[in-house]
Every structure is written in structure tokens, then in C-alpha cells.
Design a protein around this nucleic acid. Structure first.
Lengths: 329, 329
DNA sequence: TTATTAATTTCAGAGAAACTGAAATGGATA
DNA sequence: TATCCATTTCAGTTTCTCTGAAATTAATAA
């Protein structure tokens, strides 16, 4: 059976024109190369060189050189691509993220990531938490960034940062003039507009307020426009309130337990592709400090995120089963 | 360094879905395959399968399978082509032959040769002896079939058969009525037309006749037409006289030493391509009996032709250095 | 859950293959 | 003919790969 390495030796000798130089290139002794060649000739059943001095090929040798050089090159390139893939220099990364992260955080970390990886294709979906989890679960994307899934969800979750809810109201509103964190009681007289993100807030005082609310709006732009018009107020995660237009303000809540936890959603028991793993690492290392630097939250990140090993991936998702908040934004 | 055989093992396992079946296909024990896979994963730096049960690939494994299957297939096909070439099932055969052989003998042996070799390309030139040798010498053709070259010619020669010269004359001619082999004296009163083939006849009696001749014609058809018209007579190798038209006859010469020796012309010190070697063998084995069966010559072939080994190729051409006849036809 | 079964992995030793360095051979050059 | 250089041969060593037994792990049955 003809070995690729024998082919490589032959091609090197044929191209060098003599054994000595070829042996040097191959990091072998001339005798080793000579033996390989002899064996190769035995295996193909005919002489490859016209003379002992390896500077002239037979017809068979010429054919072998043509074929062999092609194979060796192609093989080396293929192996290089495998390594490039394994070292996440090439590949394809598909992401799904809630819009607030997609718009406010991803743009800050993505450029550096792609800079060294000009052969990596990236596709990103910005969709609500529920869809993020669905896409992760179905394998449509490698990684998701979303609020914490329900504990029984078939995906694992690694929390990255907390995002407190804030009250969004018109600059003219009564609330805007209160010079301290707002209490639930401050909201009692306001018309509360519900939204996808606030849907999953569990605080009892909030429940009471939201039960009375009659309107749900899922689009942030519309939500803000309604608040600005003085029609009502709403609760949004701080990250969604970074670029508020003139006429509306965001006020902190006194109840700092009202928050969503945003993190990485990934499929259970599936090894990430090398690019995805690399991007995950970047997320874990860079998102929490980035969020902290935005000054949205004065407190520490909720947990010290540590990348789970393959077998433990599932555990890290199951460990915490506190209230599973969610944010559609 | 990733070996092709490791890739092959991986591809086989990935396609079989388990190690046991793959090991069977590879004619290895499962433990050997398992170790190969483990080493492969180490070399690429990541897991290729999701679980120990090898039925589900990681992204890296999928990429490796794609790349690897392609490489293994391509390699196997390439090696198969090299073998096909070495076993003369594929390749290209270029021949040059004097027209008499090209027209009368080659068609009888070529069909069977090409029948088992439907991927062999064949190119044949029918040209005079001198050009045959030139094409062989310059490497334009693998093999030539021609008269014996001069002893110092840079080509080797393997004689295949003798071809006696015969007298071509009109049916109405005086010579046509002589009921025995013709003697030189019979020709004394005839107008002798010279030709490329007869040019190199060395017999002294012929010399005397040809010195008196004034016309040389190199085209057989014209030559025959002239003879038919009664303009003169000419001497042609018997093989060129097999399909004489009405109106001319060929008569044997009493001097049976007047002959050309036809054989294989090949380049010195050049290994034939496998197809060429195979065709050469067919020529050596089949041409002499074929010529004998044509009844052109009652005697034995001049030597027992034996295919020369690589180093001896030159010798076999040098051994005989008797009168180097030639035939332009 | 525990026992059973099947598949895979680990390990140590055997065997095969490839490599090296020294000596022999073979061509080319003076 | 002698010398030089490249290549080959050879024997011994090193490195790899394979096997078979035992251990581990996962899946299935009780």
C-alpha cells in the first residue's frame, strides 16, 4: 500500500533532482530516502527514475510526479484547513441575541474578534429571548444571548450580567421630578404600559400594578414614544434605556431586586464549534466588565462566570434555579 | 503530523457510526482504531465526536469528515490511476512506423491491444525509416518500426523480421514470363527505377544496375503505375507488394540476400512507458509469426528476438553490425 | 434501582516499520 | 586508472502501530 509519505519523498526527490538535497528538505538521511524510493518503485512495479542519479524521470515517474505532487499539495492544504478550523481562524459563527445586547454590547466586542479572523463568517439574529432559546435548541445558531431560561429548558445557561429594570417616563411627568429611586407606591397613580421584558417580573408589588394595566407594547420605540407623550410609564431593562431620545427619562427603582439576568444560551451536550467556543470565551471575559463600565449597575456581577467544561455544561445550567426572569428585549 | 491512515480510520468510523464495524472494515481491532482516533483528536486539538459512542460528530468532526473523506477518496483514486498507468491500462502510446508495416501488419495486431485498454490513447505516424529514427531519437514517439539504423545511430534496434526485395514489373513485361526466380542478369536489359527502399541495397550486382538508372521515385503508388505502364521495373520489399493492382506482378529474386531487416527502434537508455513496453512486447511476440504466415519469406526470422532488459537495451542493438540495409517504405 | 450486556478505552507487550550510520557500490571526472 | 561524490546496502536501533486482556463506561433489562 503506497503511503503518502513515500509519495512526498518521491516528489521532493524528483523536484530536487538528487537525493541528498531532498533528504535535507525531508529531514531524513539519504539512506532513508533511498530506501523509501526503492520500496515505492517495488510497489508501483516499475522504475521511476532513469538512472541512480535522480535527475531524470521515466514516463512512469513523470506520471507519478504529476499525480503525487497534486496529492501531497492537496493533502497539506486540507490539513492546514483542519488546523485553521480547530484554531478558529476559519469557520462560521451563528449567533442569536436579544436586541438590547445585539445593539449595545456586541458591536463593542465583535470588531476585535473578527479582525484576526478574516475568513470567519458571522451571522447574527436579533430576536426576543424566547426565539433565541428556540434557535439554540433547534441548532439553528451556535450560541444565544438572552435572559435566563426556565430551569427545565433543554438548553444550558451561563449568566453574564444583571440588568436592573428602570422606569421610563416623560420628562414632564410627575415621576421625573422625584429626586430619589422610585418606590412601587410612586407608580400607583401612573398608567403602566406592559412590555415583553417586564412580563416576567415576579415582585408582588409589581404584580399588583401590572394586574391593573391594560396595554402591552412590545416595540421599544413605540413604548418610548408613548411614554414621551405622557400616556403612561413603563419598565425596561437598563441596557434598553441607554439611548433614550429627548423628552423621556429613565429613573431607577428603589427595589433593586427587579432585574433580568442575561447570559449565554447553548445547547446541552453539544460541543461548540471552535469559532463559537472562541467567541463564547470573549463574551464571558468581556461582557461583564463592559456592562459594568456602562454604569448601568453599581453592584457586582451576579456570579463569577466560568466556562463550563464539556461534561459539566449541563450542570452549570442547573445549579441555579432561582426566579427565572426574562426579557423580551 | 496527521497521517492519511488516521484520517481514513476517522472517516470510516464516522461513516459506520461505531468503532466495531469500522474496525472490521479497516481490518484492525477496535482498540487500534480507538487509539488512532484518540491520537487524531490530540493532533487537531479538539474532540471529533460528541460521545464515546461514535455516532455523533462535533462541528470539528463534521468539518474533518468533509475534508478527510475528500482527501481519502482523492488519494485512493490517484493511487489507482498510478497503478493503472503502471499496468498499462491507461496512458498514451505514440508510434512511428514505415508505411508498409503500418498498413499491412499493425492493423492486424492493434485491435486486440486496444480492446482491453479503452483508456489508452494511441497516436501513429507512418513515415519513412529515416524520419522514424529521427522521431524516436528526439523523443517525439515512444517506439519506431523501421529498417535497421546505422550502427552508430543513437537509437537501439531490435530486428523483427526480414523482408526480401522483389522485382515489380508489368504483366506484359518480358520478366513476367520468366518462370523462375530472377537473376541480376535478367534485369540487365530493363529500365530500373530506383526508390527510397532500394537505395540501400548493397549487392554489387545491383550496384552495377543502379548506377545506370536515371530515375528515382519515392511514392509506391507512382512507382507501381510506372511499372504497369511498361516504363521500367523496380525493386520493393515484399511487404510493400502485397496489394498490387492488376497489370503488375512481383517476382522473386534468385539472390535471396537482398533484403531489408525491419525491427523496433527505440531511444537508448530510456525506460519505455508501461503502455509502450506492453506494445513492444506484442510486437516482438506477434510480428515475426505474422510476417511468416503471410508467406513473404520461406525462411526463418533472422534472430530470435528477445526483449532487452533496461541496462542491456543498448547492447542488443550493438551485437549485430552486419550490412545495415534500409527501406524508405 | 441494580444487574446484565455491549461498546469502548486503557495498558503492556509483541511485532512491524522506518530510521541512522557505516561500509560498499557505482558513476563521473581528472 | 585513480579519485571523488552520490547512492545503495546492511545491520542494529528506535519509533510506531497493533493485538489481546482487563478495565471502564454506557445502554438495557430486571
Amino acid at each position: 500500500m503506497i503511503k503518502l509519505e513515500a509519495l512526498r519523498a518521491f516528489v521532493t526527490v524528483a523536484e530536487a533532482g538528487n537525493i541528498r538535497d531532498a533528504a535535507k528538505k525531508l529531514c531524513r538521511t539519504p539512506s532513508a530516502v533511498s530506501m523509501t524510493l526503492k520500496q515505492l518503485e517495488e510497489e508501483v512495479g516499475g522504475p521511476l527514475f532513469e538512472t541512480d542519479r535522480k535527475n531524470s524521470l521515466t514516463a512512469l515517474g513523470a506520471f507519478m510526479l504529476e499525480t503525487g505532487a497534486m496529492q501531497v499539495d492537496s493533502y497539506d492544504r486540507a490539513i492546514e484547513r483542519v488546523h485553521a478550523f480547530a484554531e478558529n481562524r476559519i469557520g462560521r459563527l451563528t449567533l442569536a441575541s436579544v436586541p438590547s445586547v445585539a445593539a449595545n454590547l456586541i458591536p463593542q466586542i465583535l470588531p476585535r474578534f473578527v479582525a484576526d479572523r478574516n475568513e470567519v463568517e458571522i451571522e447574527m439574529f436579533d430576536i426576543d429571548s424566547r426565539s433565541v432559546r428556540a434557535m439554540v435548541e433547534s441548532g439553528q445558531v451556535d450560541l444565544g444571548i438572552a435572559g435566563r431560561p426556565a430551569p427545565d429548558a433543554p438548553v444550558s445557561f451561563m449568566p453574564l450580567f444583571r440588568d436592573r429594570f428602570r422606569v421610563i417616563c416623560s420628562t414632564d411627568s410627575r415621576l421625573a421630578r422625584i429626586n430619589r429611586p422610585l418606590r412601587w407606591s410612586d407608580l400607583r397613580r401612573e398608567n403602566l404600559i406592559l412590555n415583553g421584558a417586564s412580563e416576567r417580573i415576579k415582585a408582588p408589588s409589581y404584580k399588583a400594578l401590572s394586574d391593573r394595566a391594560t396595554m402591552t407594547v412590545r416595540n421599544v420605540t413605540t413604548l418610548v414614544a408613548l411614554a414621551r407623550s405622557g400616556f403612561g410609564v413603563t419598565l425596561l431593562p437598563a441596557l434598553s434605556t441607554t439611548d433614550l431620545p429627548m423628552g423621556v427619562v429613565a429613573r431607577d427603582l428603589a427595589d433593586t431586586s427587579v432585574e433580568r439576568v442575561v447570559g449565554i444560551v447553548e445547547r446541552n451536550g453539544i460541543t461548540l464549534s471552535p469559532v463559537a467556543a472562541a467567541f463564547r470565551k470573549v463574551l464571558v471575559e468581556e461582557l461583564p466588565p463592559l456592562v459594568a463600565s456602562l454604569g448601568l449597575d453599581e453592584r457586582e456581577p451576579p456570579e463569577t462566570p466560568q466556562p463550563p467544561k464539556r461534561p459539566e455544561a449541563l450542570e452549570s445550567a442547573e445549579i441555579r434555579s432561582t426566579d427565572p426572569e426574562d426579557a423580551a428585549l
